[in-house]
């Protein structure tokens, strides 16, 4: 594996790590959602440090150049992250709907009670 690619991967890993940790500290990112990105950082560093892993995987999967395998793995990782976000989004949509309904019903009942008290 070219040394330049390995350096690039480590730089990329560092940038991601810094952005993720700064985001956590500024309360812009929850720990539970940061883990997947930190796993990505670790994976990048491991592969840059021990390119043999990639060569071994290339042989197993029959892929000719290591960079192709890295792109493939990167793509799969992004797909998994995006899919998990779609699921989180759906769950939150359901929760927002439930909250909206609950708040609206509470508000309706409070106003109704107020009107009744007013009438008496």
């Amino acid at each position: 594996m070219p040394i330049l690619l390995r350096i690039e991967m480590i730089v990329l890993a560092l940038i991601i790590a810094v952005v993720v940790i700064v985001s956590i500290n500024r309360k812009k990112l929850m720990i539970q959602y940061s883990l997947v990105w930190l796993v990505l950082v670790v994976a990048l560093v491991v592969v840059a440090g021990f390119p043999q892993i990639i060569f071994a995987l290339c042989t197993i999967f029959g892929i000719q150049t290591p960079s192709n395998l890295i792109y493939l793995l990167g793509l799969i990782a992004l797909l998994l992250i995006t899919f998990s976000q779609s699921r989180i989004l759906s769950k939150q949509t359901e929760r927002i709907k439930f909250l909206t309904q609950s708040v609206s019903i509470e508000k309706y009942q409070a106003e109704k009670k107020e009107n009744e008290d007013h009438d008496e």
């Binding site: 709907k97 909206t100 309904q101 708040v103 609206s104 019903i105 508000k107 309706y108």
Partner: peptide, 8 residues
Amino acid sequence: CLTLVQNL
């Protein structure tokens, strides 16, 4: 009338 606080 029950008004939803936002459009659902």
